[in-house]
Design a protein around this nucleic acid. Structure first.
Lengths: 173, 173
DNA sequence: GAAACTGTACCGTCCGGTCGGTACAGTAGA
DNA sequence: TCTACTGTACCGACCGGACGGTACAGTTTC
């Protein structure tokens, strides 16, 4: 869809030049479209940013859904797998994520994000073999996300693999 | 110092109304000062934000320094303790943190933040009894920070205490 | 020829930053 | 002690530019 191409352009501007560079003109130029054309699809800038936010959330939900099957412990495992998938695909999804969250600081824009965060981390204690371990594992995945977005070179491939393995192992025992 | 009062005002504006509300006029009004008065102390808005960033970094470094004593394993322990101290003080420091990091998305402004993040998480593997565990524990602390800033009500006092205890226990074995 | 879409010219607002000026405390000289 | 001068802190009107958004006249597609 055309809208997706526009969102791609917005994300590109955002992750390359930061929040304050996200202007309607910049996005339109990047997408090879005039400002009027952009505004035809997203009537306001707020609508654009909102669409940006809901898209990343859906993407991550999908990623979780690829591994999650409802069985006990499956969610935390899926969360870990989804996180590492993000880091090993070439798409630099984590760069996009942090850029988008930074762009959505207005209370209203941030709300879907907060809601998603709560959904991802507030889990049924009975879901994991040990609930505290499950929580810690998910938090570590979250932290990894945060660290990677600030300092992508910090962990090498081997270290990431070791982290993933250990996190999954923690869930098993 | 007067500058600190101005920074306090900026933080207040930031955490209450988001990034785009951080205007010179808003900060000045909040501090009970004219725009000219504010600009006397911080010649540009960039200088203001930069000061904001370096202050939070220093604050967290100090917090780590309160527990860190150079002994093996001491750093990861100090990192965990510092994180939980932030959540148990009344100052809602974590709210300030996320607001400030969001405000500093321009590559130049974000650099000191990235540097701090690398400093906090790139540690000597020999420092912890088990380096992977140490990394996971620090990442979990980082993740907790992130989750709390988006959804402060998610973990109750008891859950936080349990998390802290378990994280410290993981470092001991 | 209607609908979907695009391009462009333009408007009003807001924001960062400048600048001329004020208040005032200190101080130094005679 | 009066005067002249200096430096610091602060004020607020104003400017230029950028940005979000509107209006509307094309243009393509079916």
């Amino acid at each position: 869809m055309k809208k997706d191409a526009l969102l791609d352009a917005a994300e590109a501007v955002l992750s390359e030049h930061g929040t304050q560079a996200l202007t309607l003109t910049a996005v339109a130029d990047r997408a090879g479209v005039s400002k009027g054309g952009l505004l035809y699809h997203f009537p306001t800038k707020e609508a654009l940013v909102k669409a940006l936010v809901t898209r990343v959330i859906e993407e991550f939900d999908d990623l979780i859904g690829q591994t999650y099957d409802g069985s006990p412990g499956s969610y935390s495992r899926a969360y870990v797998e989804a996180t590492f998938k993000v880091f090993t695909d070439g798409a630099r999804t984590y760069r996009r994520w942090s850029a988008i969250t930074a762009a959505a600081t207005d209370p209203e824009l941030a709300e879907p994000l907060n809601e998603a965060m709560a959904r991802w981390h507030r889990r049924d204690p009975a879901e994991d073999r040990d609930p505290v371990t499950g929580t810690i594992v998910r938090l570590a995945a979250e932290g990894l996300w945060e660290v990677m977005s600030h300092s992508p070179e910090l962990y090498g491939e081997a270290e990431l693999a070791a982290l993933r393995e250990r996190l999954l192992a923690l869930l098993e025992r």
